[in-house]
């Protein structure tokens, strides 16, 4: 059982070809803390999140995820995090329920109907059992991504523009979810353009 992780970035930089996105990123985020990464479009916020998630490798530097003084290996790292990103696309030919069942099964997390309904309610998603994701609106898809993330019960939340495509009600729900997550000692990193999303963060870094 792992609880209370902390994320440590040491001297992380990323260049794509000859273009330098960012250099010298040093930060620590502990359980129950929230970090906001801000910056204009194209400054590398999404890339930094993807690097922390392990999807990309940094050009230099290391990312460590530590729990009880023990560093996670690559597989444990993947098992403890959840990612919300505009780049994540769920399977359009499956229903919302089937998507959640599929991904939780990949993580060996048992999820029954009742629990799935619970998660969907928490994100304000009322879904018809047989409705394919193909027919969802963008707002519904965003809520489904959150429902999926909750079902994974991650210790590290990586949120890239979490309230994009959501109406005012949705934005409120997300803010509520984030504070609930922090209360349950998740570590949360948000990359955002919206100042209000970064408002309640414990730390902020700005990419140029």
């Amino acid at each position: 059982m792992y609880r209370d992780i902390s994320v440590k970035l040491v001297d992380v930089s990323k260049s794509i070809g000859t273009r330098v996105l960012f250099t010298g990123i040093n930060l620590v985020v502990n359980a129950g803390q929230c970090l906001a990464i801000t910056g204009p479009n194209g400054s590398g916020k999404s890339t930094l999140l993807k690097i922390i998630a392990g999807l990309n490798q940094p050009t230099t530097g290391t990312i460590q995820i530590i729990s009880n003084n023990k560093q996670f290996d690559a597989e444990e790292r993947r098992a403890c995090l959840g990612l919300i990103s505009p780049e994540i696309i769920l399977y359009a030919d499956l229903t919302g329920r089937e998507n959640i069942l599929f991904f939780t099964r990949l993580r060996k997390i048992r999820c029954n109907e009742h629990q799935i309904e619970g998660y969907c309610q928490k994100v304000g998603l009322s879904i018809d059992k047989d409705q394919l994701v193909r027919t969802y609106s963008t707002g519904m898809r965003q809520r489904l991504k959150f429902a999926l993330m909750l079902a994974m019960q991650p210790l590290l939340w990586l949120l890239d523009e979490p309230s994009s495509n959501l109406d005012a009600d949705g934005k409120r729900l997300i803010a509520q979810m984030i504070s609930n997550g922090l209360e349950q000692n998740a570590a949360i990193i948000i990359a955002t353009n919206e100042p209000w999303e970064a408002e309640h963060a414990d730390y902020k870094i700005e990419l140029a």
Partner: peptide, 22 residues
Amino acid sequence: MPTIRLNLLNCIWAIMMKDGLC
């Protein structure tokens, strides 16, 4: 709650079924 060692056969089956269903 993260699981440490994924059940490989279970995952393989899940992926195959997902592709089959789609």
